[in-house]
Simulated scan of single mutants.
Amino acid sequence: MTDYAVEALKRKRAETTGEIARCQARLEKLASDLAHIDGVLAILAPDLVQEAILPKVFTPPKSWSKRGEMSRTVLNILRTAKEPLTTREIAGMVMRQRGLPEPDSASLNVMTRRVGHCLRDKREHGAVRSIEETGLWLQWEIVR
Rank of each mutant, 00 (worst) to 15 (best):
V94S: 12
E83A: 12
G99I: 07
E83M: 07
P103G: 05
D104Q: 08
M93S: 08
A91I: 06
A81V: 05
V94F: 00
L85K: 13
V94D: 14
T87D: 08
N76I: 00
E83P: 00
A91S: 12
L85G: 10
M95K: 11
M95E: 05
E83T: 08
P84R: 02
T80N: 08
L108F: 02
Q97A: 13
A81K: 04
A91T: 10
E102S: 10
Q97E: 14
A106P: 00
I77A: 13
T86D: 06
E83H: 06
N76D: 15
I90Y: 05
R96S: 06
S105W: 07
L78N: 06
G92N: 06
E89S: 15
R96N: 11
M93I: 09
P101I: 07
K82A: 12
A106W: 15
I90A: 07
R98V: 01
T87H: 05
P84D: 04
R88H: 07
L100D: 11
T87P: 08
P84N: 04
Q97L: 15
G92H: 05
R79M: 07
I77Q: 13
L78M: 11
E83W: 03
L78A: 03
S107A: 07
P84K: 02
P103K: 01
A91E: 12
G99P: 06
G92E: 05
I77V: 15
T80Q: 13
I90S: 06
M93D: 11
M95R: 12
A81M: 04
P101M: 10
S107M: 13
R79I: 01
A81D: 02
I90M: 07
R79L: 05
L85M: 14
V94I: 06
I77T: 14
G92M: 04
G92I: 01
R79A: 11
E89Q: 15
N76M: 05
I77R: 07
S105N: 07
M93A: 14
S107P: 00
A91R: 03
R98F: 09
R88N: 09
S107T: 10
P84F: 06
R96Q: 05
N76S: 14
A81T: 03
V94H: 10
A81E: 06
R98Q: 14
L100H: 15
P101Y: 15
A91W: 01
E89P: 01
L85S: 09
R98H: 15
D104L: 08
S105C: 02
Q97K: 13
A81P: 05
